[in-house]
Design a protein around this nucleic acid. Structure first.
Lengths: 333, 333
DNA sequence: AGATTCCATTAAAACGTTTTGGTAGATTCC
DNA sequence: GGAATCTACCAAAACGTTTTAATGGAATCT
């Protein structure tokens, strides 16, 4: 049943050699017009589809890239993935998606799969700062571009957003609104993003002449709406004036928890999240947030990766750092 | 630099033949304990990683499956994808993700990529009802399981949720709440889901002794929060008692639009969405919805697909249809 | 016209696995 | 002790491409 038609059959039917068919496929300019159109005709007739594995095996590289993200359930990452997918697909690359779900072992397993598939390159938002795994990939000749994480070395592309600045923006905004008692609700400190946003916030306190030690920090185990709601319970006993959440999922959960407990937002507590996911503006008390150029993040990272793959000689490694943008909405007005 | 170590080098170093190494990898029980552990040792030492393409080429099938979804930005689909990914990854399969974004040509391109990669099987939520493309895949010997779409033929696996029932549940619930003037806000009618949920709603009207023609239908071009907000503007001129949205994204947008215009939900207008995405319960006026077993949908579909791939002889095609579940929250109380 | 260059094509050798058929050597059976 | 049966391994042939070096013929040059 599974009639797979190979390049040979196309060649036979078109009266040329397999090599010529391959040329039609890969360097059409090398083959005479008449021959080319004849071959193309036969390809259509027979419904020939190139065997990617054979091609990869012989050519030594594939037309796939691996994308490893921390939480596919977070709209932030789906936006990144959309950026990756759009560009990759335009350039004829397939994307293999791996969700590390914050687990180091899952991440490692995904990278192994990528290595087995001999992906052309890997885009990864690492779940921690250990560069070891990535070294291993590079040692195999697989290009790696870090996404939402600064480079750990110069011969390495990375696309990130300045999280310290973002943290400063968020906290400064809350302080300007008159807040004196500030809380920071974050995920695990193993995540660089959480640490840096905190540093930024502390910097804002210092700039306002306040003791950075006054920042009340809640470190939740996850960065989900559920965790945000738990954070609300923790805060209810002693409400701060304002809360900065390390991402919008936390903030939305927190918001709900506070409102359910009868706390008025922003009158009693003002609130700001991070990422500016779509749902931030759609929530009823619309959520202030720190916008990151999410889709661009994915797109630019892919651009760099494909450049590194396709033009290894001229490729110059780049560390791109975008600036975040403050978006003020009802929750902090 | 890119030192790729092959099965041959492992064999040489372990003092066995390549075939034996292959056996250690694929049927360890066939090889004597001592030899096996020696080979495994060498594999670790050399950091050998099997070349997936070579394996695929020779074995005639890969360890990857393709997943084509309609909108990766919709949490419904990321939940499905999570279910797919978890199980696939457990079974040693990699998932290639394709986002059709509702576009038929993008979907087609994704399927071509899947065919080139010689994926073992394809999971797809088709963007319309045309079975033609899927026939082509099957003709190539690629197993296909439909996700969130009933089967179009008996020799075909499919996992779906009863959308007619779901539509009935939603509308009946609104009618029970005392609503008389009912609106249905949906996406394009080319989408089967939108059509069936509408049929269900009309059935509920009929069951309540009302004319189904009284259902006021708004057909938006997208199923996003933004489209929902536009729908709110359209409804404001002549408010219905209750609105049923074809998915939660629409409902959340609509909710926000209504509240911003000063309409009280559920007092003036009660509202129900569909899918019960996480954000439905996290929104301030928590959203009633029709829950689908989303993660299960992905998981079961993958189960069926892998069974069809791994046990083609004993595999029995199944059409599984889950029942949806009504979740009542504030927006319709 | 003969020598040279160029162009379009081909034949054949890879790429790294899996798999088939076979063979030695050990074990069991009569 | 010889025949039969296992067991554990190996050699070699695929799988479907891409790529390199070679080839024959047309076009250009002297």
């Amino acid at each position: 049943m599974s009639e797979t038609v190979s390049i040979k059959e196309v060649a036979a039917r078109a009266g040329v050699s397999p090599g010529t068919v391959s040329n039609v496929l890969n360097r059409p300019e090398k083959v005479a017009g008449a021959t080319r159109s004849r071959v193309e005709q036969v390809i259509r007739e027979l419904g020939f589809v190139r065997h990617g594995s054979a091609s990869t095996l012989r050519a030594g590289h594939s037309r796939t890239i691996g994308l490893s993200v921390i939480d596919i359930g977070n709209p932030f990452f789906t936006d990144v993935a959309a950026g990756v997918e759009d560009l990759a697909s335009d350039r004829g690359y397939a994307v293999i998606l791996g969700n590390s779900a914050g687990s180091r072992s899952k991440e490692e397993r995904n990278l192994l799969v990528f290595a087995e598939q001999r992906v052309r390159g890997v885009l990864i938002t690492p779940s921690d700062d250990d560069p070891h795994r990535l070294e291993r990939l590079r040692a195999r000749g697989i290009a790696v571009v870090l996404v939402d994480h600064p480079a750990d070395r110069a011969d390495q592309c990375a696309v990130s957003v300045n999280d310290v600045t973002g943290g400063t923006m968020a906290a400064a905004h809350l302080l300007e609104g008159g807040a004196e008692r500030l809380a920071y609700v974050a995920g695990p400190a193993t995540m660089r993003q959480c640490r840096e946003r905190r540093i930024g916030a502390e910097r804002a306190l210092a700039a306002a002449g306040l003791d950075p030690g006054r920042l009340r920090v809640l470190e939740m185990t996850a960065m989900t709406a559920k965790a945000g709601q738990q954070a609300a319970e923790l805060l209810l006993a002693d409400l701060p004036d304002a809360v900065f959440c390390a991402n919008d999922l936390l903030a939305l959960g927190l918001l709900r928890g506070l409102l359910q407990a009868g706390v008025r937002v922003p009158e009693q507590v003002s609130l700001i999240g991070y990422d500016d996911i779509d749902f931030a503006s759609a929530s009823t008390v619309s959520l202030s947030s720190v916008r990151q150029p999410t889709y661009q993040l994915g797109r630019v990272a892919t651009e760099l990766l494909l450049d590194e793959c396709d033009n290894p000689d001229t490729h110059a490694h780049q560390q791109i750092m975008f600036q975040p943008e403050l978006v003020v909405r009802e929750s902090s007005r």
